[in-house]
């Protein structure tokens, strides 16, 4: 199934794009989407331990399952304020 991936902050600089489509198996977890992203853009792999995620603009764990058409966002460490 297909999900839309959004990359923020330094992640989109490293990957060279802000948005992409990813093909993942049915009932895949967010972590599988991250694997697909790092497979395509190895430069973002060092963020494995510090990245957090959201699905359809809700914070989720990497173990959360995704659905067809979901918007999966990967967030490097934040720096608002």
């Amino acid at each position: 199934m297909r999900v839309t991936v959004l990359l923020f902050g330094r992640l989109h600089d490293l990957a060279g794009l802000r948005e992409l489509e990813c093909e993942v198996p049915r009932e895949a977890a967010v972590s599988a989407v991250w694997q697909a992203v790092t497979g395509r853009f190895p430069a973002v792999a060092p963020y494995a331990r510090s990245v957090s995620a959201a699905v359809n603009a809700e914070f989720v764990k990497m173990t959360t399952a995704v659905d067809e058409g979901d918007e999966v966002a990967f967030l490097p460490p934040v720096a608002g304020g």
Binding site: G9, V78, A79, G80
Partner: peptide, 17 residues
């Protein structure tokens, strides 16, 4: 808050994390 700061200097730039 999912907000990121991109700072530009005279000789480069950095994402604050």
């Amino acid at each position: 808050a999912p907000v990121w700061k991109h700072e530009y200097f005279e000789d480069g730039d950095v994402w604050i994390e």
